[in-house]
Amino acid sequence: FLTKYFNKQPYPTRREIEKLAASLWLWKSDIASHFSNKRKK
Rank of each mutant, 00 (worst) to 15 (best):
1 F>C: 00
1 F>T: 07
1 F>K: 03
1 F>N: 08
1 F>R: 00
1 F>Y: 06
2 L>M: 07
2 L>Q: 01
2 L>W: 13
2 L>H: 01
2 L>K: 01
2 L>S: 00
2 L>D: 00
2 L>I: 04
2 L>G: 00
3 T>L: 01
3 T>A: 04
3 T>F: 01
3 T>V: 02
3 T>K: 15
3 T>Y: 01
3 T>G: 08
4 K>M: 00
4 K>A: 01
4 K>E: 00
4 K>L: 00
4 K>Q: 01
4 K>C: 01
4 K>G: 00
4 K>N: 02
4 K>D: 01
4 K>R: 02
5 Y>G: 00
5 Y>K: 06
5 Y>P: 02
5 Y>I: 09
5 Y>A: 00
6 F>E: 00
6 F>D: 00
6 F>T: 03
6 F>W: 09
6 F>Q: 00
6 F>S: 01
6 F>I: 05
6 F>C: 05
6 F>Y: 04
6 F>L: 07
7 N>Y: 01
7 N>M: 01
7 N>I: 00
7 N>G: 03
7 N>C: 02
7 N>S: 09
7 N>E: 10
7 N>V: 00
7 N>Q: 04
8 K>A: 00
8 K>T: 00
8 K>I: 00
8 K>S: 00
8 K>F: 00
8 K>R: 05
8 K>V: 00
8 K>N: 03
8 K>Y: 02
8 K>W: 00
9 Q>I: 10
9 Q>N: 12
9 Q>F: 05
9 Q>P: 01
9 Q>V: 04
9 Q>W: 00
9 Q>T: 10
9 Q>D: 07
9 Q>E: 10
10 P>E: 15
10 P>T: 12
10 P>Q: 15
10 P>M: 04
10 P>W: 13
10 P>C: 12
10 P>H: 07
10 P>D: 12
10 P>L: 07
10 P>K: 08
10 P>I: 09
10 P>V: 13
10 P>N: 14
11 Y>M: 13
11 Y>A: 14
11 Y>L: 12
11 Y>D: 10
11 Y>G: 15
11 Y>H: 14
11 Y>E: 12
11 Y>I: 13
11 Y>Q: 15
11 Y>C: 14
11 Y>N: 14
11 Y>R: 11
12 P>D: 14
12 P>M: 09
12 P>V: 01
12 P>R: 08
13 T>F: 13
13 T>R: 10
13 T>Y: 14
13 T>S: 10
13 T>P: 12
13 T>Q: 09
13 T>A: 12
13 T>K: 10
14 R>E: 00
14 R>V: 03
14 R>S: 03
14 R>Y: 08
14 R>T: 10
14 R>Q: 04
14 R>A: 01
14 R>H: 02
15 R>C: 06
15 R>F: 02
15 R>P: 09
15 R>L: 06
15 R>I: 05
15 R>E: 11
15 R>G: 09
15 R>V: 07
15 R>M: 06
15 R>A: 14
15 R>Q: 07
16 E>V: 07
16 E>W: 15
16 E>H: 08
16 E>M: 11
16 E>R: 13
16 E>Q: 11
16 E>S: 11
16 E>A: 08
17 I>W: 15
17 I>K: 02
17 I>L: 11
17 I>G: 07
17 I>A: 08
17 I>E: 01
17 I>D: 01
17 I>T: 01
17 I>C: 11
17 I>M: 15
17 I>P: 04
17 I>Q: 00
18 E>I: 01
18 E>T: 07
18 E>L: 02
18 E>R: 13
18 E>N: 06
18 E>H: 05
18 E>D: 09
19 K>Y: 01
19 K>M: 02
19 K>T: 04
19 K>D: 09
19 K>S: 02
19 K>Q: 04
19 K>C: 02
19 K>L: 01
19 K>I: 01
19 K>A: 02
19 K>W: 01
20 L>K: 13
20 L>N: 07
20 L>E: 00
20 L>C: 14
20 L>A: 11
20 L>Y: 13
20 L>G: 06
20 L>V: 11
20 L>H: 04
20 L>Q: 02
20 L>D: 04
20 L>M: 15
20 L>P: 08
21 A>E: 03
21 A>Q: 03
21 A>D: 02
21 A>K: 14
21 A>T: 08
21 A>Y: 07
21 A>H: 02
21 A>I: 07
21 A>W: 12
21 A>S: 12
21 A>V: 08
22 A>H: 11
22 A>G: 10
22 A>T: 09
22 A>C: 05
22 A>E: 07
22 A>S: 08
22 A>K: 14
22 A>N: 11
22 A>V: 03
23 S>N: 10
23 S>V: 09
23 S>I: 02
23 S>Y: 03
23 S>R: 15
23 S>L: 06
23 S>Q: 02
23 S>C: 08
23 S>A: 07
23 S>K: 15
23 S>M: 03
23 S>E: 09
24 L>Y: 01
24 L>K: 04
24 L>E: 00
24 L>V: 14
24 L>G: 05
24 L>T: 06
24 L>H: 02
24 L>A: 11
24 L>C: 08
24 L>R: 03
24 L>P: 04
24 L>I: 13
24 L>W: 08
25 W>M: 12
25 W>A: 13
25 W>R: 15
25 W>K: 15
25 W>Y: 05
25 W>C: 08
25 W>D: 07
25 W>T: 14
25 W>H: 14
25 W>E: 14
25 W>I: 11
26 L>T: 12
26 L>E: 14
26 L>P: 15
26 L>S: 13
26 L>N: 15
26 L>V: 13
26 L>D: 12
26 L>W: 13
26 L>F: 13
26 L>A: 08
26 L>I: 08
26 L>Q: 14
26 L>Y: 07
27 W>D: 05
27 W>P: 03
27 W>A: 10
28 K>V: 15
28 K>E: 02
28 K>C: 15
28 K>S: 12
28 K>T: 15
28 K>L: 15
28 K>N: 05
28 K>G: 13
29 S>Y: 03
29 S>T: 10
29 S>P: 15
29 S>F: 02
29 S>K: 15
29 S>A: 11
29 S>G: 11
29 S>C: 06
29 S>W: 04
29 S>E: 04
30 D>L: 03
30 D>P: 13
30 D>V: 04
30 D>A: 05
30 D>C: 03
30 D>M: 10
30 D>T: 06
30 D>E: 08
30 D>N: 01
30 D>F: 05
30 D>W: 12
31 I>G: 08
31 I>R: 06
31 I>M: 13
31 I>K: 04
31 I>Q: 08
31 I>F: 06
31 I>Y: 06
31 I>L: 11
32 A>Q: 07
32 A>W: 14
32 A>T: 10
32 A>R: 13
32 A>D: 05
32 A>E: 02
33 S>H: 12
33 S>W: 07
33 S>K: 13
33 S>D: 04
33 S>F: 05
33 S>Q: 11
33 S>M: 10
33 S>T: 10
33 S>P: 12
33 S>G: 11
34 H>K: 12
34 H>S: 11
34 H>E: 04
34 H>C: 13
34 H>D: 03
34 H>A: 12
34 H>L: 11
34 H>T: 08
34 H>F: 09
34 H>V: 14
35 F>T: 05
35 F>S: 07
35 F>E: 10
35 F>M: 12
35 F>N: 06
35 F>K: 06
35 F>I: 06
35 F>V: 10
36 S>V: 04
36 S>E: 03
36 S>N: 04
36 S>Y: 03
36 S>W: 06
37 N>R: 10
37 N>E: 08
37 N>D: 07
37 N>T: 10
37 N>K: 14
37 N>I: 13
37 N>V: 09
38 K>A: 07
38 K>F: 04
38 K>P: 06
38 K>Y: 02
38 K>Q: 05
39 R>C: 06
39 R>Q: 06
39 R>T: 06
39 R>A: 10
39 R>V: 06
39 R>N: 12
39 R>G: 06
40 K>R: 07
40 K>T: 12
40 K>F: 09
40 K>Q: 02
40 K>N: 02
40 K>S: 05
40 K>I: 04
40 K>D: 05
40 K>E: 04
41 K>M: 14
41 K>Q: 15
41 K>P: 06
41 K>H: 06
41 K>V: 04
41 K>T: 08
41 K>R: 09
41 K>Y: 03
41 K>A: 04
41 K>G: 08
